[in-house]
């Protein structure tokens, strides 16, 4: 079975509706119409470009090019994590913590999935490696962003409480424990929701894609379960590493709360 061809004018019907939505938002002064259009435009441009890159990559299939694309994806994700936070840690630490935590989690999970579980030949075969990494990295990025945003924002808001607990002689990480717990929870909510809703509330995108492309549903389900677990592992470990590193960075060697290391919020 082949996938039904999709032409540009068919896509433009969906695009026209999206523009109508933006115009409605603009006419009703509800905002977001501008960022909606920019995001939609980004989707079209970015996906078109990555389509070209993937076609080139699939014909070459060299490890070096796969690694380079993976690195580019990681760096862009690291920048996004920083940009999406209200009060990120400033300087190299801010970008570094997000990037490092995504690297150790999403990358290890991808390599593990490829080399040990799925086992394509060669293990870095781009048809498998890039889409898998994309899914793990994208979801890990969301979780890491949410948890770091919650951590830094709550540490800022509750700085008086945290310092009061320090004054009573609590250790830094004990004084931050409530904040840390809620930050980790924020990072896990998307993956737990996704797993809980899978198949009943939502049909995951990759499984839908495989079924549309003609795979038997039972195989698509197995892949989807594997992907879900991979996403959970990537997001989960990414969240843990990010929260651990960032909460360490919120204090100095004398266990003083250092909210001055947070960038002031944008308005």
């Amino acid at each position: 079975m082949n996938v039904i061809e999709l032409s540009v004018w068919q896509l433009s019907i969906a695009a026209a509706l999206l523009i109508a939505l933006a115009v409605t938002l603009w006419l009703t002064h509800l905002g977001v119409s501008r960022s909606l259009l920019i995001a939609a435009l980004r989707t079209v441009v970015q996906l078109t470009l990555i389509g070209l890159v993937l076609e080139a990559l699939f014909t070459m299939g060299a490890l070096l090019w796969v690694a380079l694309l993976a690195l580019a994806m990681l760096l862009i994700a690291g920048r996004e994590v920083q940009a999406r936070q209200q009060r990120p840690l400033s300087g190299a630490w801010g970008i570094g913590i997000g990037t490092v935590s995504m690297f150790v989690s999403a990358f290890s999970v991808t390599v593990l999935m490829l080399a040990v579980i799925i086992g394509p030949e060669p293990w870095y075969r781009p048809q498998y490696a890039i889409p898998l990494l994309g899914m793990f990295l994208g979801n890990t990025m969301t979780s890491v962003t949410l948890s770091l945003d919650r951590l830094t924002e709550a540490a800022w808001r509750q700085r008086a409480v945290i310092e009061a607990r320090l004054m009573l002689g609590q250790r830094a990480q004990q004084a931050l424990s409530d904040v840390r717990r809620s930050a980790v929870r924020s990072g896990f909510i998307p993956v737990i929701n996704a797993m809980a809703a899978a198949g009943v509330v939502s049909l995951p995108g990759m499984m839908t894609g495989q079924i549309l492309a003609g795979s038997p549903p039972s195989l698509a389900v197995k892949y989807q379960i594997l992907i879900m677990f991979g996403i959970t592992l990537g997001s989960g470990f990414g969240t843990l590493v990010a929260v651990l590193l960032a909460s360490h960075r919120l204090f100095d060697g004398r266990q003083r709360l250092r909210v001055d290391r947070l960038r002031p919020a944008r308005h």
């Binding site: 509750q158 008086a160 409480v161 310092e163 009061a164 607990r165 320090l166 004054m167 009573l168 002689g169 609590q170 250790r171 830094a172 409530d178 004398r254 266990q255 003083r256």
Partner: peptide, 20 residues
């Protein structure tokens, strides 16, 4: 002193108290 030990010995009671 480790910082938390010091603060338990030399305890600041701020003007506005905090409860969590």
């Amino acid at each position: 002193f480790p910082a938390h030990d010091w603060r338990r010995q030399v305890m600041l009671v701020p003007a506005e108290s905090q409860w969590w």
